[in-house]
Design a binder for these strands. Structure first.
Lengths: 147, 147
DNA sequence: ATGTGTGCAAAGCATTTGCAGCCAG
DNA sequence: CTGGCTGCAAATGCTTTGCACACAT
């Protein structure tokens, strides 16, 4: 099951954050977008559309920061573009982004966990895979071998 | 042995790039900085100091681009800051950056290769580890467990 | 009432681009 | 001599910040 917008809002409330229209709007968008890779700009645009409210980019950033602080949301850096946000519960996988075609895919959680375990065993470093993507060539582009 | 500035310059020449003062200056800095993580701003500053020449940021970026195009240089994204550049021959390891103390360390090449192999086996994706860092907590910060 | 959250505007930072002149080939 | 390369300046894209007012508590 996926977390609902009201759960996000409630969690913010419990953390001492005030519940406002702007925050509600951002929570709706974020909750509705499970699995999608939304940039701050995407969230801003959708939040404006769904809630006719007047809403500023900076408010979106501040709300996303609050959600991250509350441990409900996380952002990843997929490539050279803007950061993308996703629910914390959707985390744990590793993003793979093809430097040739730009396609992004994911490495399943179990695989990612194996890698994280290997890194811990060898260095003691507790890796938070999925914060940064891994760049490379997808199977299709690698097959072209003329990159 | 490490590559020298003149080898970098020569390689640019062979690729059809013209040899200029600006390019020489950038090559000196890059060749002298093996193993260091230099941002474009660092390179700009050092290149200005070492070669009294007048030099512009944009020229540095353009030269770095030329060096990358020639396969001599690569850049990595270590964190939220600027990209860092290093000689292509120094690549192959995976950067680990602690989200708490900001310290960066490296995962040895053999470990990184094992991971890359696991990713290929499971998805066909040819990972270029070391382009993006892995975020997480270093052993020391993880031990604090109050993050 | 009080101070947190808001929109607005402007700054910030890393990087890119347009352009007219310069210099390597 | 000719086009690639330069410095300069300005623009870009994403994100952050300062501020006075608004509103959730």
């Amino acid at each position: 099951m996926h977390i609902t917008a009201s759960k996000l809002v409630d969690a913010l409330g419990e953390r001492g954050y005030r519940i406002t229209m702007a925050r509600r709007a951002v929570c709706e968008v974020v909750a509705a977008a499970h699995d999608e890779h939304l940039s701050a700009a995407d969230i801003y645009q959708r939040a404006r559309e769904t809630s006719g409210t007047r809403l500023d980019r900076s408010t979106v950033y501040r709300t996303l920061e609050a959600l991250e602080d509350a441990g409900l949301l996380a952002h990843s850096h997929l490539g050279h573009g803007p950061s993308v946000y996703h629910l914390a519960e959707d985390a744990g996988h590793q993003h793979l982004i093809c430097r040739n075609c730009g396609q992004t895919m994911t490495l399943p959680r179990e695989e990612a966990d194996l890698i994280a375990d290997a890194i811990i065993a060898s260095t003691g470093f507790v890796a938070d895979l999925n914060h940064f993507a891994v760049s490379g060539l997808c199977a299709d582009c690698a097959a072209l071998d003329d990159i």
